[in-house]
Design a protein around this nucleic acid. Sequence first.
DNA 1: CAAGATAAAGTAATTACTTACTTTCTTTTG
DNA 2: CAAAAGAAAGTAAGTAATTACTTTATCTTG
Lengths: 212, 212
Amino acid sequence: METTPEPGKRAYQSTELRQTATVEAVVQLCAEQDPATLTTARIADEVGLSQGALFKHFPNKSRLWESVAGWVAEQLTSQVFSKAEQHELADQALEAMFLAHIGFIARHPGIPRLMLGELQKPGNGPAKTIIRQTLSRYRKKVVGLLELGIQQRRIGPGIDTEAAAVLYIGAIQGLVVQAMVSGEIHTIEHTAPRIFKLYKAGLQELPDEPEK
Amino acid sequence: METTPEPGKRAYQSTELRQTATVEAVVQLCAEQDPATLTTARIADEVGLSQGALFKHFPNKSRLWESVAGWVAEQLTSQVFSKAEQHELADQALEAMFLAHIGFIARHPGIPRLMLGELQKPGNGPAKTIIRQTLSRYRKKVVGLLELGIQQRRIGPGIDTEAAAVLYIGAIQGLVVQAMVSGEIHTIEHTAPRIFKLYKAGLQELPDEPEK
DNA sequence: CAAGATAAAGTAATTACTTACTTTCTTTTG
DNA sequence: CAAAAGAAAGTAAGTAATTACTTTATCTTG
């Protein structure tokens, strides 16, 4: 598992390396533990460091969380947005984004816990602000693609784009909640295309109210 | 607000009353505070009790959370399911459920924090089990209504009911996440009908893949 | 060898829960 | 039916465990 160092020989590393290693360790740990219960001791142990040494690389726990939030925002947006740009048609771009997002979560099961955990905190901590901005930016990207899709005649012209963006994020959340309930994270990659198909059907705009 | 008792005369109450008062206080507090950071001292203070007195009514904190989870499950299912039974047509029942659920959350903004907080914990604590069972039961109810809707010809016959149930719960989650991001809880009651309209459109089943 | 990385031990604050005792309510009984 | 006895509800202070963060001294390495 770990590169066992010669007994007595410690592997000193630069703060920069330790910082990224620590952030990734936190993301890793969130896959198996509630972020709220993550202690500096547990994190240090995962990195292979004494608890005190952690504070040579981060001034305090809050800043560590800030770095983690930044890492998540960076990874998520870069990985998801890049997939969107590989498609001309807006609806296909949306589908690619959707599946990339779900894949990202499947690869890092701690991410939803992390993001939801931050959002749950009231107030406006720095970490929460980063997550909020990321989600806000994400939402705007989706709205933009939806409007493009309408121009391209791939999406019904009367579609409520704001609502559709909320439902898009909700579709992801629904899969996440289902995974939390069932406890099996990897089912979501299988279910995701079915969910998106249904979501997309709602964007097509039909006959109007069948009742009344 | 409170019936101020004669000074010096304390209002001793039965454990039963204290228990329900405490549970409701916790739900109330979750509207403004992360459940993970709720201390017994803060709870006792809200009830108007010394911290130690709390343990005359609950053997430990874990059992208190169990009671809270039970209260939430009870209230949510009774309020939401009862609305469903007032409608003959399955799609109208689903809409009524949806709006009732959002209304319930708007009246008790702490509920999502509570439920998500529990689901976030790994393992199978008693409180988490209650929430899980509640969501599972909820999901089955939705699937049942969807199948009924197909029989009634209100919903497309080829609809993936399992996926549609996940998306239904996701639609609620999407609204919750939006509220967490914006910080304004009461917008969800306004947005909810727009989201459901979009969701319902996806259940109508159309021409098949427009591309390929 | 100097700058910086690390461990190990320590500290103050917080938290769930306990204990010792007091006050109120309920029940039994002379 | 009052008074005493007992049970239940309350407080206030204490305790052990945990936690984020500090300090001191030692070890690595460019």
